[in-house]
């Protein structure tokens, strides 16, 4: 009769080690898969808005420090055009009457 008992004096410990290793591998696989899915979902939901300041990805689950607040928290800020050059500004014609003013106050 062939047996392995002679070669494995601690069968219980070996079984435990094997099960622990299998559990560790499964946990790692699930973790990597979950992280990948989360990143994919966030990437898909994140709008490509290069004009505003970047929002943090932290969750607002309580009293939080104000560092890095989301620019999109206000519905009115920076949601117009996103160009950063002089796209909205130009030279005025000599005979054009002014329609508005930006005066220091």
């Amino acid at each position: 009769m062939v047996t392995t008992e002679a070669f494995d004096p601690h069968p219980d410990r070996t079984r435990w080690l094997r099960r622990s290793a299998a559990a560790a591998v499964a946990t790692a696989v699930l973790g990597v898969t979950g992280t990948g899915l989360a990143v994919a979902v966030l990437a898909a939901r994140q709008p490509d808005n290069s004009g505003g300041t970047q929002a943090t990805t932290g969750t607002d689950d309580g009293t939080s420090s104000s560092s890095g607040p989301s620019d999109s928290g206000s519905s009115s800020s920076d949601n117009g055009s996103s160009d950063s050059g002089s796209g909205g500004l130009g030279s005025a014609q000599q005979d054009s009457p002014t329609q508005g003013g930006s005066h220091g106050s």
């Binding site: 117009g80 055009s81 796209g87 909205g88 500004l89 130009g90 030279s91 005025a92 014609q93 054009s96 009457p97 002014t98 329609q99 508005g100 003013g101 930006s102 005066h103 220091g104 106050s105």
Partner: peptide
């Protein structure tokens, strides 16, 4: 839009055109 930019209201200023966005002094 044609906009006058000046240090204070009533002061001599410069004129620029504004198609969109914000202009502040």
């Amino acid at each position: 839009w044609v906009i006058e930019v000046a240090e204070r209201e009533g002061d001599p200023g410069v004129a620029v055109t504004l198609a969109h966005g914000g202009l502040t002094t």
